[in-house]
Design a protein around this nucleic acid. Sequence first.
DNA 1: TAGGCCATCTGGTCCT
DNA 2: AGGACCAGATGGCCTA
Length: 143
Amino acid sequence: MKSRRSSCTDSGSESSELDSKSPEKYETATRRRMAANARERKRMQGLNTAFDCLRKVVPQWGQDKKLSKYETLQMALSYIMALNRILTDARRHTAPHRQWLDLQFDSVQPENYACLMSYDPPAGQDYIHSSFSYQLNGHQVHA
DNA sequence: TAGGCCATCTGGTCCT
DNA sequence: AGGACCAGATGGCCTA
């Protein structure tokens, strides 16, 4: 884990204002701030996990250096556009060209998006894509 | 050493 | 009231 800012602590900046108030209020505010910081840390970690999943799915220039968050989003956008184009073009082709389409998807393997498949939505929430499924190179894919 | 990227803290806003 | 989300600020690490 990275070191924290030296000038800031989990106690929060509201301490100075609350110093003059009752110790109970100060304690409560401190506890709330620490809890909020912990939640924010956890939230950002979740976001980073999602970015890691996206990096596994998106094409990379090289394996030596991982894409930054910005680059990952840009690459994902380009990748989706490219796949969309492939599908659009495929619709214009008839059966004799089916092999061509299979070739386009040759590099798309289930293990590449395993992290997305295992995603559990929060309880009580339904997602449209949760019942989505399709056939890809003989693989039945459920998402 | 400057610049890019990132983690963390923080306060504000919105939602449940 | 409390949690989720967001954006700004700040400081650390790394690389050219």
